[in-house]
């Protein structure tokens, strides 16, 4: 059995297990709740990774798309519109917004793009906070009814599967090569015929649509959303951290990162306020300095007994 078949088989088994969980687990409520979060975060991290990992365009403002999805669904369902319309509308609106900001922001490169995204994220939060007639301002929005937990669970699972499958497909496709080339050297990519701005915009659009759906599921799960929860900087931070923990630019890394992220949050958030974010900060520093390829990098290193790639180990300047 070659590696490809092996990993496909592993995915199949994991998926079968995930589908079986609701029917076999004892304490199903709690287990479902935790797994729901893992899948939702996994989908969100995978979506962020399409742009941040594959194309190397690190965004600190991705909460904007989650927020747009969440608010669209919340507002439309309050008007009595079916979820079958509300959720796609949220995704498309998030996607449309991504085009509005992507077209100017992608004139910026690397770190400049990242800084601009902090501004974009903060600006959307402020707008949500101040557009009271639409969003209810700081007091947020409450949804009337939620689908049963099992439906939410399968929705999150489905979104996660779709995101990861999409990432896996992109990785080996022509589009994936464009993104990888952009990440490494956008100028060289251009001279080889890659329309870098178009590719980046497409990646951002896909990423935003997936986050829009995630936002809808988020709203339906918690039944309450506010600018500080869905549009908050904390959300954007989480989106950056999960893929980095797992392995930036990989297919399964963000999902792994989501597991670790959810676990650390569950463990620490209860003990001491902000201890989780402190831990994430330390983790981020450690990963960046010692193994920028995250958990998957560590696994790779253990497996092959290799040293880290030379230029990461080297203490250089310039």
């Amino acid at each position: 059995m070659d590696r490809r078949t092996a990993s496909l088989a592993a995915c199949g088994v994991a998926l079968a297990a995930a589908i079986a969980v609701p029917f076999v687990a004892s304490r199903a409520e709690y287990v479902l709740d935790v797994l729901f979060l893992v899948f939702l975060y996994g989908a969100m991290a995978t979506a962020w990774n399409l742009l941040g990992g594959f194309a190397g365009q690190v965004s600190f403002g991705h909460a904007a798309f989650l927020g747009i999805g969440a608010y669209t669904t919340a507002i439309l369902t309050q008007l009595g519109i079916s979820l079958w319309i509300a959720v796609p509308a949220g995704a498309l609106l998030a996607g449309a917004f991504s085009l509005v900001i992507g077209i100017p922001a992608f004139r910026l490169r690397g770190p400049y793009f990242s800084i601009a995204t902090i501004g974009i994220g903060e600006a959307t939060r402020l707008i949500a906070l101040n557009w009271t007639s639409l969003t209810g301002g700081a007091s947020g929005l409450t949804l009337a009814t939620a689908p049963p937990l099992i439906v939410q669970y399968f929705a999150a699972l489905a979104l996660c599967v779709v995101s990861v499958a999409l990432a896996a497909w992109i990785k080996v496709s022509r589009f994936g090569y464009a993104l990888a080339a952009i990440r490494q050297d956008p100028d060289a990519a251009e001279t080889l015929g890659v329309a870098t701005t178009v590719a980046k915009t497409q990646a951002l659009f896909l990423s935003a649509c997936l986050l829009g759906v995630a936002g809808s599921i988020y709203a339906l799960h918690y039944l309450f959303i506010s600018p500080d929860s869905v549009f908050g900087f904390g959300t954007s931070i989480g989106l950056v951290i999960m893929p980095i923990i797992g392995g930036l630019g990989t297919v399964t890394g963000p999902l792994l990162g989501a597991v670790v992220y959810t676990f650390i949050r569950e463990q620490l958030a209860a003990t001491l306020a902000n201890a989780d974010l402190l831990a994430f900060g330390l983790l981020l520093i450690a990963i960046v300095v010692f193994e920028p390829r995250g958990i998957l990098g560590i696994i790779d290193r253990v497996r092959s007994g290799k040293k880290p790639p030379p230029e990461i180990a080297a203490v250089g300047d310039g």
Binding site: R174, A178, A180, A181, A188, A189, T191, G193, V194
Partner: peptide, 28 residues
């Protein structure tokens, strides 16, 4: 019209083959 760079600019973390696949996938 394709150009090479005087100061080489390979995609350093890709394999040699993948570097060239980028060219093949795009280009004329």
């Amino acid at each position: 019209v394709a150009a090479t760079h005087q100061i080489v600019r390979p995609f350093r973390d890709m394999t040699v083959l993948d570097n060239v696949v980028v060219g093949a996938f795009f280009g004329r």
